[in-house]
Structure formats: structure tokens, C-alpha cells
Amino acid sequence: MTTLSPSAAGALPPAAPTRPQVRPPSLLVASGIVVRRNLIHIKRMPELLLDVTIQPVMFVLLFAYVFGGSIAVAGSSYREFLVPGIMVQTIVFSSFIVAIGLTNDLEKGIVDRFRSLPISRAAVLVGRSVSSLIHSSIGITVMALTGLLIGWRIRDGVLDAVAAFGLILLFGFGMIWVGITVGSWLRSVEAVNGFMFTVMFPLTFVANTFAPTQNMPHWLRVVAEWNPVSALTQATRQLWGNAPAAGSDAAWPLQHAPMMAVAWALLVTVVFAPLALAAFARRSRD
């Protein structure tokens, strides 16, 4: 770029003759640029992070101190039991974050603008997914620190601990596709809000996240223990040493929790990734 210097300001670069060199970015580069743009959003509106910071911390404190006394947990303290549950809830809600971000961009015409550029259409989705995972990871970190303050500990080896965080991220990857599906399918941020609250709360509560499943009515216990969220929660508790392995009366997925957490994440991805891509393509086609 030798044609432009600060002194040339005021004259538009002539269009045809000295077109700057343009080389359409690869998917990786384009996604990176979109991620950076999304992170600038968080920097400008830190309140976007409330959903993964103040809100779950409040949950931790409410559950630990209000309900904690009356929920008995076999082989563990309730606070140790609770923290992995809240972390899992946070990662499940990453689908919510993706959906809101995507719907916002669709509504405001930003997606159309990106589509008029020489970049892969997938860059919008990849960028959105990665920034949402970063967003959720901030939440997981905050949860871990809060947990450490109130008595949650990692009691097993480093490898196991890392594996648990890895499981959480893998599950988050699956949930992102759910978010893209919902975000492409619903037409407004309000609709996404309504839908996600209605679906995500039962999904994260009818599980072993906040209370043990043993005391639930039989039918509910079956539902809760087959809920993918439970397998992930049980797996992280086991890996961090916060709870013993599930008893022989628990449903099969809980008895094989780490393996099932991986399986559920892959299943969610396999089911929702094609749905998400189809919904996004349909939404942004006409």
C-alpha cells in the first residue's frame, strides 16, 4: 500500500485503477475476525456477561445457603454437590447465548451484510459459536472461583479435573447447535428468550443438578436420570471427586456417566448440526 498516505486523506481512493489488493480471507481468518467483533461487544456491554457471572453466583449462594440445609446428599456436602450442577447449567445455557446473538445479527441485517462479502457463510456460525464458548468459559471460571470460596474442591488428579472441564466444553459445543437452530428458527430476540426459558429451565432442573434424584417420584427420577444434563453433572462430580459413582439403583446412563456425557454431546451434535445448518440456510436465503 504505497498509494495512500495521511496526506492523501480527503480524496477517495480512485475505484478502478488503484484497487487495493484484496484476498478473500480463509474460513479460519474470517471466523477469527467475527470472534473478535463479538468479543468487542462484550467489552462494550459487560452486562452481557451477567448471565454467566452474577446470575449463577446468585444461584450458588441461594441454593447453598437457602436450600442447602434441607437437601441431604449421600457421601458429600451439598455445596460440593451443587457447584458442578451450576457449571453444567451454565454450559447448557450457552445455547441461549448463541441463539440471542444470532437472532440479533439476523434481525439487524448484519448477517446479510456478512453474506454480501466474499467469505464463507460458515464464518458467521463458527465465529458466533467460538465467542459463545468463550463467553460460557468465563462463566465456568467464575463458578469455579465462587465454588472454591464456599468449599468446593477438586479432590482427584489434575488429569481427571481437566477431563471434566473438557467434558463441559464438549457438551457446550453440542448445545451451540441447539442455539443456532433456535436462533435461526425464531424471528425475534423476545421469542428466543421466551422459548429458551421455557425449555432450558426444565431441562436443567429435572436432573441431578440441584438435588439428588433418589427422592424424586419414580417416573420423574427415570426422566431426570436419562436427561443428558444428569450424565454430564454426574461425570464432572466423579472426576472432581465431589460425589461417589452412582449407585446400582440409578439409571444406566448415570452408572456410566463420563462415557455417556461424551455420547450425549456427540448425539446432540449429530442431531442438531444438520438441523441448525438447514435452519440457518433457510433463514438467510431469501
Binding site: 500500500m1 495512500l4 487495493p20 489488493q21 484484496v22 466474499p118
Partner: peptide, 14 residues
Amino acid sequence: GRLSGLSRRAVRPL
């Protein structure tokens, strides 16, 4: 500018 394929160096002065 970057998504259009301009280099990091070119995009700023433009």
C-alpha cells in the same frame, strides 16, 4: 474491510 479481504496493514489507512 478485513472480511472483504484487505490486509491488516491496508485496512487502517483506507
